[in-house]
Amino acid sequence: MLNALTLLTGVAALLLAAWCGWAAHRDQPTKDWHFIGMAVVSLLAVVQLATGIVQLARGEKPEQGTTIFVAYLLGAFACVPAAGLMSLAERSRWGSLTVAAGGVVLAVLEVRLYDIWGG
Rank of each mutant, 00 (worst) to 15 (best):
L2A: 12
N3A: 09
L5N: 15
T6Y: 11
L7E: 13
L7D: 11
G10C: 04
V11L: 13
V11A: 11
A12I: 04
A12P: 14
A13E: 01
A13V: 08
L14P: 07
L15I: 11
L16F: 10
A17S: 14
A17T: 09
A18K: 03
W22K: 15
W22I: 14
H25V: 10
R26V: 03
D27Q: 14
D27T: 04
Q28N: 04
P29S: 09
P29Q: 12
T30F: 08
W33P: 03
H34D: 05
H34K: 00
F35D: 07
I36Y: 05
I36N: 09
I36P: 05
G37A: 10
V40K: 07
A45F: 03
A45S: 12
V47G: 02
Q48L: 11
T51F: 05
G52M: 02
I53G: 00
V54P: 01
L56D: 02
A57S: 04
P62I: 00
P62W: 02
Q64C: 02
T66H: 02
T66I: 05
T67P: 00
V70N: 01
A71D: 13
G75F: 06
A78G: 15
C79M: 04
V80S: 01
M86D: 06
M86A: 15
A89P: 02
S92F: 04
S92L: 13
T98Y: 11
V99E: 06
A101S: 12
G103S: 10
V104F: 12
V105T: 15
L106M: 14
L106Q: 11
A107L: 14
E110T: 08
V111G: 08
L113P: 14
Y114C: 05
I116S: 06
W117M: 03
G118V: 11
G118D: 01
G118L: 03
G119M: 07
G119R: 11
